[in-house]
Amino acid sequence: MKARVTISLKPGVLDPQGRAIHHALEGLGFGQVADVRMGRVIELDVADGTTEEQLADMARKLLANTVIENFRVELA
């Protein structure tokens, strides 16, 4: 069974990488971009019956740093 954990920076946390990407997009002429935030997606192959709560537990204990990041879990 496939699962996905999407990790994003909390609102208000400075994202220098997102800013650099934004700047590069502007340089390519994409002037319509107002803001860019960079996160990460972790795909897991998990045992059948794994719950969203178990995935959230993985995210809280390792996959995300909840000081600066939010996460969202999905089971496929």
Binding site: V13, L14, P16, Q17, N65, V67, I68
Partner: peptide
């Protein structure tokens, strides 16, 4: 310790 160490602002 509290807080987090993120990518340097200048990258």
């Amino acid at each position: 310790l509290p807080g987090a160490l993120m990518r340097n602002a200048g990258l």
